[in-house]
Design a protein around this nucleic acid. Structure first.
Lengths: 154, 154
DNA sequence: CATGTTGTTATAATTAAATTTACATCAAAG
DNA sequence: CTTTGATGTAAATTTAATTATAACAACATG
């Protein structure tokens, strides 16, 4: 299948809203940045809204976050758009007549759950604010490089 | 797309081989248990062989593990069949003209890497032997249930 | 009331994976 | 040495999850 970029795009949307607290933000503007179409953006926003992470009103192009970026975790966004889908997938197609097969899968499920739990705990440590901060750093760093380049050129 | 069950199936294959150290094990026998066809099994075995986790010889239906199950981790198997593919995927399609977009994605990459690292460390703690043990427990537990059922029926 | 945007749903297109097929190559048995 | 059966590999096909697209009713604003 295609790789899911829902989490990535959802973070993008959330960050975009956080960075535009005042101005009007249409789904089309956001879609331009993600390079997709407004329909996709609205679908993701619908999921984020249903999960209580943002508020938006029909016909009113001013979405807003329900919480501070420091109170929104990557896990929140993951759960909002991916639900209970996990990162590793069992093969549930194994031959049920084969006792070995089914029990190996059951055993493996326990360990996949363990990895999932670990990943989710890590995602819970990461907030939207962290991502915004890192974003600012990247921008600042780029600015520095540009400054140096200019002074070298003189 | 379809969900990848390569890790799951690869563990299945490795466990199957570990449980059949003596007998001849054809790709067809393994395929029956996973309920797929021999070609798929051979493709996965090829990846496992290239990564050095098992040995098998053309025309000789007796695959064997290169290490003790207690020395083979879930991470080994993951790397063998999934390579450097990670669990979470960035949207690399964002508009490069949109400075905000690209830098949010760059910032997010750092955090996706962090989650990946965490998951991989957890996978490294889990050995094939652990999975085999859990498998035995499940089998044993099922046996107990059966015993009880029989005695109740008397 | 006119315009523009959202929320929702249904449908199509895309893409990564699994499956299937085919065949050359090798091992073992007769 | 020949036959049989299995493997290793690669190409072509099918399947399935996701994204993209389109359409339209409902709502806000001026």
């Amino acid at each position: 299948m295609k790789y899911s970029t829902k989490v990535s795009d959802a973070v993008h949307i959330m960050a975009f809203i956080a960075l535009n607290p005042a101005g009007s933000l249409t789904s089309e503007k956001i879609a331009e940045s993600i390079r997709t179409n407004p329909g996709c953006v609205r679908q993701l926003m619908s999921l984020l809204r249903k999960y209580g992470l943002l508020i938006s009103i029909k016909g009113h192009p001013k979405p807003s976050l329900t919480k501070l970026p420091s109170d929104i975790t990557l896990l929140d966004i993951y759960k909002a758009v991916e639900g209970e889908k996990s990162l590793l997938h069992l093969d549930t197609h194994t031959n049920p007549e084969c006792g070995v097969g089914i029990h190996i899968q059951l055993a493996l499920q326990d360990y996949f759950d363990q990895v999932q739990k670990c990943a989710e705990e890590e995602m819970q440590k990461i907030t939207l604010q962290d991502i915004l901060n890192r974003y600012q750093e990247k921008l600042f760093h780029l600015g520095e490089l540009f400054e140096r380049k200019v002074s070298e050129d003189l």
